[in-house]
Amino acid sequence: MSTALRIEFCGERYTATPGETFVIGREGDLEIDDNPYLHRRFLAIDEERGLWWISNVGSLLSATITDGSGGVQAWLPPGARLPVVFPLVQVLFSAGSTTYDFTIENDEQYFSTTNIHSGASGTTTIGVVPLTSSQRLLVVALSEHVLRQDSPGRGEIPSSAEAAERLGWPLTTFNRKLDNVCEKLDKVGVQGLRGGRGKLATNRRARLVEYAVASHLVSREDLVLLDRNTSAGAAAHADGDGE
Score class of each variant (00 low, 15 high):
83 P>M: 02
196 G>F: 03
138 L>N: 10
22 F>N: 01
215 S>D: 09
219 S>Y: 06
40 R>L: 10
92 L>E: 12
150 D>I: 05
199 K>A: 08
166 R>S: 12
105 E>I: 01
240 G>E: 04
203 N>Y: 14
92 L>Y: 15
132 T>H: 09
140 V>S: 12
20 E>I: 01
177 K>H: 13
216 H>I: 00
139 V>A: 13
58 G>P: 08
107 D>M: 04
62 S>F: 07
62 S>N: 12
205 R>L: 08
127 G>N: 08
177 K>N: 11
81 R>H: 09
106 N>S: 14
210 E>W: 02
204 R>Q: 04
139 V>K: 07
98 T>K: 10
155 G>E: 04
78 P>C: 07
137 L>T: 00
82 L>K: 05
167 L>G: 10
231 S>T: 06
8 E>C: 05
50 G>M: 06
117 H>K: 14
113 T>R: 10
173 T>I: 08
130 P>D: 05
134 S>T: 10
114 T>D: 03
80 A>Y: 07
95 A>H: 01
104 I>H: 00
78 P>L: 02
37 Y>M: 05
145 H>P: 12
86 F>S: 09
116 I>M: 12
71 G>D: 11
213 V>F: 10
167 L>H: 07
174 F>I: 02
149 Q>T: 08
28 G>P: 11
101 D>F: 07
41 R>F: 09
212 A>K: 05
137 L>W: 10
84 V>R: 01
82 L>D: 00
166 R>Q: 14
96 G>P: 12
45 I>E: 00
206 A>D: 07
88 L>M: 12
190 V>Y: 07
34 D>V: 02
125 T>L: 15
186 D>E: 06
116 I>T: 13
166 R>H: 07
86 F>D: 05
22 F>Y: 02
27 E>S: 13
232 A>D: 15
140 V>I: 15
67 D>N: 09
176 R>Q: 09
78 P>M: 02
154 R>D: 07
184 K>Q: 13
179 D>L: 03
65 I>Y: 12
97 S>D: 14
